[in-house]
Nucleic acid binder design. Structure first.
Lengths: 192, 192
DNA sequence: ACCTGAACACCGTTCAAGT
DNA sequence: ACCTGAACACCGTTCAAGT
């Protein structure tokens, strides 16, 4: 009998996400993973939404800590670290989409974005829009990455390898979109 | 007894979405709306995912048709029309996110984006990235719009009106983000 | 303090049976 | 051809009851 606590529940949930995806993440599945009954989980967590918030908040905390392991962290580093941490948990972008962005570390990351955008010259009334654009970019990008890595491996199609279209490397693609956004921010700020 | 067909099911589903949102959109709720039992729906549609695809495909078709009601449609018009049609159905962005983008009209819209991006000088290997960026921007933007319009009306807070922070008009915000992306595309293309 | 059995109010989907 | 009753295999959540 392991000790069941929030940590253990979080770990079991992450394990299910990374092996079977969010569609298989039921309270009953988490409980089974911990050799316990579903009802027991509610002694440790409020509900499933609370669990989702803990997952997204945990990711946000790790992003925040890695972010500040460098002298002068900027938006480029935020996005790189954010993407890397999202990729560590299958379907994490969906979890972010399904939770309100008001937990402590997640709020810190938003504040970091807004501060840096303002510093880059984004007009105050549009920092939220630009911040959402960045946030949604990384969430959507990782969501697409994880989606296609599932589709590609399930519907294995040899013709894809003969295809003359050379798909860009995911890292390059991510950076292309980021550069595009950063360039756009610079232009908008000059003209503002 | 109304005649129950795909059209009627689609209409009932849309009605539920616009009154109660996607969380209330169950097969049983759709059936009840049509004075029929849930099992009957499966005589007309394959399953719930099929219904989701019909909803997103219907939106895509209307976007495509409105798009071509003008002489030389461009990406600006695509995004404006897309946003307008998404806003007509509550939670439509989530429906797009939960369906594969391989239906006919939806494919046409993607092709339209890719063609125009290439014409703007986006390198071939990055047209998909830029297209996804645009697509995800409008989906995320409308999703946020619909989310906050729900939160604001439920947790009515008078202090928000006294707040000195002037939030930008949604239309202006949307255009700001679009201009940012378009400006970024132009810069990337010059340097490419 | 922590866990469970049992139940409640739901899901999507199938299928033999009805008309 | 079209609809339904009944069932199957699930959900999240609650709560009295157990230890």
């Amino acid at each position: 009998m392991m000790k069941i606590d929030q940590q253990a529940i979080l770990k079991a949930a992450t394990e299910i996400l990374n092996t079977k995806g969010i569609a298989a993440l039921s309270m009953r599945a988490i409980a089974a993973n911990l050799d316990v009954k579903a009802a027991s989980l509610y002694f440790h967590i409020k509900n499933k939404n609370d669990l989702f918030e803990q997952i997204s908040e945990g990711i946000s905390q790790r992003v925040f800590e890695k972010l500040n392991r460098v002298d002068e962290p900027d938006l480029q580093r935020l996005m790189d670290v954010f993407r890397a941490e999202l990729k560590r948990i299958q379907d994490s972008p969906q979890i972010f989409s399904n939770t309100a962005p008001f937990t402590p570390y997640r709020t810190r990351l938003i504040q970091f974005s807004l501060d840096h955008l303002q510093q880059l010259g984004v007009p105050q009334q549009f920092t939220a829009t630009a911040g959402n654009l960045l946030n949604n970019y990384v969430l959507s990008f990782v969501s697409d990455e994880q989606y296609f890595s599932r589709v590609d491996s399930s519907t294995f199609d040899e013709s894809q390898f003969k295809s003359p279209i050379n798909m860009a490397d995911p890292d390059d693609s991510f950076q292309y979109g980021l550069n595009l956004i950063f360039a756009g921010i610079r232009v908008q700020s000059k003209n503002g």
